[in-house]
Nucleic acid binder design. Structure first.
Lengths: 231, 231
DNA sequence: TCAAAAGTGTTCTTAGTACACCCATGT
DNA sequence: ACATGGGTGTACTAAGAACACTTTTGA
């Protein structure tokens, strides 16, 4: 209450990025193996301390860029972790930043030494409360994907309907009926069908679509919800 | 990334509480008029700097207690505000804590000098980015009330169905059909009807109910969602 | 010609919405 | 006896769920 700034103790503030990627039909997490103490040799989320001239999201995007060379990545705040003893090294709070990366069209991505994509189904142990962060982030992904077209951040700009369905099945660990999925999806009227087909997964080929972000935004402002099914 | 703790700058970390109360059919916000600089005479959310031996939620609950004498109040993290220039006095990030208080059964609440409940419909200007925090919190309240029985935090332990409906109508700024509201609500099977009636608002009286938290928790674990209607 | 994935329609079931009157009681 | 808020049931409509076969084409 008393904002007598001078006599207040300052605290270390970090960001840690929970970065999900999707490629080859598998949902993955980006982590790196620490080369220096503390926690040398252990897996950790990618993070950084926040400097005086950047916001948490800026710091998150900065480290993500430093590590992968990627820019313009979907990122939102997840939660702030403030338990007094969460880091034995020092009192340090961490702002979790939740990020999504489509891996199919980012083949040129940098992969630095010690940085690796891990299948969600088979994660290594992570330092500190990073595992909790991943659990929280997965929940966020599932909750948000129900009502927002956030899943599309994990796909290339042009994608097929079977591809999208497979992604949803991976996210929710649940199978959907192909006919109902397609019917519901197209009834939302926010996909643009392209001329071309993607023939990489079948001989017949599947039509490519693009998401109509402008139309979606307009609809959203009118109260429309992007909802594919009841979970 | 480099957790070379010693050479990293520390930052002021505050909590600001967005405290909603509900009484006399009106949704209200708790704020206080600053008696000291900076921002003397201006309205502000209730907040504090975080000390080295408390988490953000503990700090939030601490100030809430200091200001109102209230304990065991619903509180969750809203969002962390980290813009570099959000506080002209110093680089300072603030963790927004979202809280709900039912006012009907807290008549004994302390009301300190300068602290006031303001109708949401008629808020004063607030310092810094506090107005943004309130906007975000209202959105959170609406989003969360759709799928979680969070609205009950704003009512006394024993409440009537018309009372609950009025609350929802206040939160969503929307009228609901009495028959459909009651039907849907009771179909969830998580309210316990009591013997007594509340006769304060009508001659006939309305039956009192209690929420069955245990039953709700069990159902929730099985995937049940507390959802009253499509918004 | 056949294997493999893409694409398509109908019926049934469930949940949501719209709507109007009687009930209990204190004054 | 009447005014006031509490309580109830039914018919219609829309959305979700279940379900199996045809199409295309490269090898």
């Amino acid at each position: 209450m008393d904002k007598n700034y001078k006599y207040v103790e300052k605290i270390l503030v970090a960001v840690d990025c929970i970065i999900f990627g999707y490629g080859n039909g598998v949902l993955k997490l980006l982590a790196f193996k620490r080369a220096i103490t503390p926690f040398k040799g252990e897996w950790s989320l990618i993070g950084s301390f926040i400097t005086s001239n950047e916001s948490a999201e800026e710091a998150g995007k900065r480290v993500l860029y430093e590590i992968t060379g990627l820019n313009h990545i979907y990122m939102e705040e997840l939660k702030t972790y403030t338990k007094v003893d969460r880091d034995p090294g020092a009192r340090c709070i961490s702002i979790g930043q939740f990020a999504l990366v489509g891996l199919e069209d980012k083949k040129d991505m940098m992969v630095m030494n010690g940085v690796e994509w891990h299948s969600i189904a088979n994660l290594p142990d992570l330092v500190l409360d990073h595992h909790q962060m991943v659990t929280d982030a997965l929940l966020r992904l599932r909750n948000k994907a129900q009502f927002y077209p956030i899943g599309l951040e994990l796909l290339p700009k042009q994608f097929t309907i079977p591809q999208l369905q497979t992604l949803y099945e991976e996210i929710f660990q649940k199978k959907f009926d192909v006919r109902n999925f397609r019917k519901k999806l197209l009834s939302l009227n926010i996909l643009i069908q392209l001329e071309e087909k993607d023939k990489t997964t079948s001989k017949k080929g599947a039509f490519l679509y693009e998401f109509d972000y402008l139309k979606y935004k307009k609809l959203k402002d009118k109260g429309f919800k992007f909802s594919l099914f009841k979970i």
